[in-house]
Design a protein around this nucleic acid. Structure first.
Lengths: 197, 197
DNA sequence: TATGTTACTGATTGGTCAGTCACTTATTTG
DNA sequence: CAAATAAGTGACTGACCAATCAGTAACATA
């Protein structure tokens, strides 16, 4: 099962599963730049250090690759939220939600996960992508609801606040020094400790 | 004004301007389906009843067309919000904001304006599009702030709620009959009185 | 009637990209 | 070793699409 413990030989050659994981991981970053339709599969392949042909061998078409990427993205988001919620200890729903909100804002430091979610929503005209978005949101809502114990209205506000973060990041409002931009992005620190390669 | 009755009409509005307006109006619908990158200019041209070549003559490239479309979209959104705010009469900020929220939710009936905003955000890697989004949000925030007189935090919540509407529409959550979907889309009635052509 | 201007299009071009296929190379197994 | 299986790629193709250009048709003005 695990290639690391192959009874005797360390895998000098990577397994397909490991490559799939690496490609998906890189794909988060690559797709997050320009989204599904504007990103060629070749760009993902290059970032992962494999040939475009091999990406098509490992994934069922570009849509399949993107769906796997979106799934991975939401999984990482859920993970971050759960961790954030745990730092609240045994507190009330409001406090736990606050901690989760803080954890989500921290995610902005690495813009990729945020931007990819918007690109995924924008590509919802592709049925498989819509399914992936629904899956992802469902997991987030369920995790947040269960771990915080907050009521539906509070969870809805939490999600809305997350969507607001998306706008702030995509339009890069932290780079706008005007009153309206402050109104929109207040409390959403860009941290700006973001390496700009 | 109208080309049918030439008469003399000194500053007779050029037909090109009228065509531009018609194209932009149709473009809102066409671009709202699959977004900027996945929509060929020819699709917009066909919807407007002109040749693709003429669209390129009237607009400075595909990006220019899309920017004009996004501007038009935000203008219509602003208009709807102002009208919604006016129905509140001389009420307090909270009531005016509520009326505006209602007006925005009503916009969902015609999914185009909502979806186009998400597509525009997703295309923010194109600088001109990012500018258009910033312009649009700025106008919305300023209009809402001024007409409602609400404090910044309330306006921010209003914007966040709008972003939540985008998610509900794009992922078509009103078509999902599960608890998490109710949590997210509570209060955001799809009306479902939406003609499906 | 001649001349200019504006609206509008067909045909084309150069480029990009999703997806395929034949092929090479490495590893495992009998 | 031989056969089978898995990893991985270069080269190609067919389709699509943004943008251009050379031109036509209608109308205006003198």
């Amino acid at each position: 099962m695990s290639p690391t413990v192959a009874a005797k030989t360390a895998p000098s050659r990577s397994t397909a599963e490991a490559q799939r994981a690496k490609i998906v991981s890189r794909a988060v970053t690559v797709f997050s730049r320009a989204g599904f339709h504007a990103t060629p599969v070749a760009a993902v392949a290059e970032a992962a250090g494999v040939s475009p042909a091999y990406v098509f061998r490992l994934f069922p078409g570009k849509v399949g690759l993107f769906v796997a990427t979106v799934d991975h993205c939401y999984a990482r988001v859920c993970e971050a939220l759960v961790q954030g919620g745990e730092t609240a200890g045994a507190a009330g729903p409001a406090e736990i939600l606050d901690h989760m909100t803080g954890a989500y804002v921290d995610l902005i430091r690495d813009r990729d996960l945020i931007m990819l979610q918007v690109h995924a929503q924008s590509a919802c005209d592709v049925p498989e992508v819509q399914d992936a978005v629904r899956r992802g949101i469902a997991n987030v809502v369920r995790a947040v609801s269960r771990l915080s114990g907050a009521d539906a209205a509070s969870v809805q506000r939490f999600i809305a606040y997350g969507q607001l973060c998306h706008l702030v990041v995509l339009a890069d409002l932290s780079g706008v020094n005007e009153a309206w931009a402050d109104t929109v992005s207040d409390g959403i620190r860009h941290s700006d400790a973001n390496p700009r390669p």
